[in-house]
């Protein structure tokens, strides 16, 4: 099932990029471009910033973890990496469990993609601007 999903994702991604060029279109809450730019909190579907993109301007009124990556893949629990280009604030990302403290805090003006490499499942149950 996962393999089929991946193939579908690949097809959607190829098609999407073919038509949309470097645009994120409706999935984006940031500047609408595929590149992760200054002022955005950027999540990527794959490690190292690969695959689907979903970006949020820090002032965006909608930081909900609903919706999809730009390639149509569900965003919730599917992010594998993050780059925080917010100019001022860190970002706190948490898993959905209520029992154990397992927050991630990413500094502002970061220049590298950080992988959620310590989890069997992908992360990003929720995120918010500010320290954890």
């Amino acid at each position: 099932m996962r393999a089929i999903t991946r193939i579908t994702v690949g097809l959607v991604l190829t098609t999407g990029l073919g038509f949309a060029g470097a645009s994120l279109a409706g999935a984006d809450r940031g500047d609408g471009l595929l590149a992760c730019n200054s002022g955005e909190i950027c999540f990527a579907q794959n490690s190292g910033g690969g695959g689907g993109q979903r970006h949020f301007f820090y002032g965006s009124s909608n930081h909900a973890n609903e919706g999809n990556f730009h390639n149509g893949v569900v965003f919730y629990h599917n992010a594998s990496s993050i780059k925080n280009r917010d100019t001022v604030s860190p970002v706190c990302v948490t898993e959905s469990g209520d029992w154990v403290n397992d927050s991630w805090q990413f500094p502002s003006r970061s220049t590298t993609w950080s992988n959620f490499a310590y989890d069997l499942n992908d992360e990003n149950a929720k995120h918010k601007r500010g320290r954890c």
């Binding site: 154990v100 403290n101 397992d102 927050s103 991630w104 805090q105 990413f106 500094p107 003006r109 970061s110 220049t111 590298t112 950080s114 310590y118 989890d119």
Partner: peptide
Amino acid sequence: VAGLRDRYAQLGNALVQDRAR
């Protein structure tokens, strides 16, 4: 400077995550 800041923050996150597991 940028790389060190990011790598060190990642180390801190790794400690939190490893302990949580």
